[in-house]
Design a protein around this nucleic acid. Structure first.
Lengths: 227, 227
DNA sequence: AACGGAATCGTACAACGTATGGTTTCAAGG
DNA sequence: CCTTGAAACCATACGTTGTACGATTCCGTT
């Protein structure tokens, strides 16, 4: 029927909607205000468009996030291994680049990590640098496969903690101290003793150095399985 | 005003609502049908109660999930370290118990991992076994702290992959092979070569053995930082 | 010039979390 | 026993969400 005004197709010629334009706007919303702010109505609003118009370019909201997932990993494609590095350092660099790529869009990364079903086929190439480094290290195929799983899983878990804490804007160290002090006596004796011996300053935690020391542990562990 | 029937308080004496009963019902819904099925209306429905009645026992939906988070970790409290184990094996056991506790409620675990803000103060005690094992290993407090972070982060990442894959019901190995074969030539040469050399059978992946081999890598890595 | 498909919009629906405020029951005090 | 106030429960309602449906208009092709 269409009793009211003129619905039709107002955005004449010049500026039509496109999948890329939609994803760009969606990414901006997610980066600026978080995933829960990214509603179809809000997205359409920033595009100056009716909510339903989006569905002509993307089938549903999940597809929007799936499209964004590609963007997160896109930054990894251009990374090339530094020449002259040991395979161990090349492996560490791969992990650093992987972490950096996901940290570029923290809100989105958290979403992607929590719901990997959105990850498209293209994304598997992001593990190539890991395979390359370990292949240079002379590991057997099976060992390469498992080592990559181990280190990638670690990075995922690390990012989960890192990004959640950032999102919640609370600091790890004082938080941990306070929580431990609140515990009933004898609940966690070793934890209590270790945390106390470190003190509030000694516990000061830096995600960057935490990541580095974990990398060292992992690479040493992988090395030890070769020998 | 209350124009319609008799609202009041029908559930006479015998069976009143309680926080525990609500959480038990919520856990069943999450376990059976996933987190997105756990709506306040659905929860009230299974309890034979008006949705708003729940709010008398729990302030909001987030509090329901926070309450459930405690349940996930509750299974860990009773775990006692086996006597006669090396500190390395004790550490592995701690990781195994941690993984097992979260796997007991996969849907809920995925939710908790993705949104750790729901985790209450009580949960910090769950890392005590890790601290205990590493303390026995003679590590310095700072090294204990960082090693625990490393191993716990790994387990989180591992669970993320394990539980998401299970939720999506697709098998890792054939999926990976197919994805790799679909890649444009030269996109990921090492990955392609390694995956091909393993073949579809050699790639058969078992989460249990994958977890074990990762644990070996991690423990070896931690050991190597001590020496 | 006419036509057909693609893009857009207006409206509408079911489901969600929960604020508000009414009604009933129970436990305790007189 | 009766009264009373708090606690538990319910009905209604509001705003917001994703998106199905159908009508409308534009544009490239014939």
């Amino acid at each position: 029927m269409n009793t009211a005004g003129k619905p039709g197709r107002p955005r004449a010629g010049a500026e039509r909607l496109s999948r890329d334009a939609i994803l760009a706007a969606a990414l901006r919303i997610v980066d600026d205000e978080g995933v829960e702010a990214m509603t179809m109505r809000r997205l359409a609003g920033t595009l100056g468009v009716n909510p339903m118009s989006i569905y002509h370019h993307l089938p549903n909201k999940a597809a929007v996030f799936a499209g964004l997932a590609e963007v997160v990993f896109a930054g990894l494609e251009s990374v090339r291994p530094q020449p002259g590095l040991s395979w161990q350092d090349e492996l560490k660099d791969a992990a650093r680049a992987y972490r950096a790529a996901l940290r570029a869009h923290p809100n989105l990364a958290l979403q992607v990590l929590s719901d990997p079903s959105a990850v498209s086929d293209v994304v598997v190439v992001t593990v190539e640098p890991f395979y390359r480094a370990l292949d240079r290290g002379g590991l057997a195929p099976r060992a390469i496969f498992e080592s990559v799983n181990t280190i990638v899983d670690f990075v995922h878990g690390f990012l989960l903690g890192e990004l959640s804490v950032r999102a919640a804007t609370f600091d790890l160290a004082p938080d941990l101290v306070d929580r431990v002090e609140k515990l009933p006596d004898g609940q966690a004796p070793t934890l209590t003793r270790v945390v106390r011996s470190l003190g509030r300053e000694g516990l000061h935690y830096d995600f960057d150095s935490g990541f580095e020391s974990a990398l060292t542990v992992l690479v040493n562990g992988i090395e030890s399985t070769v020998r």
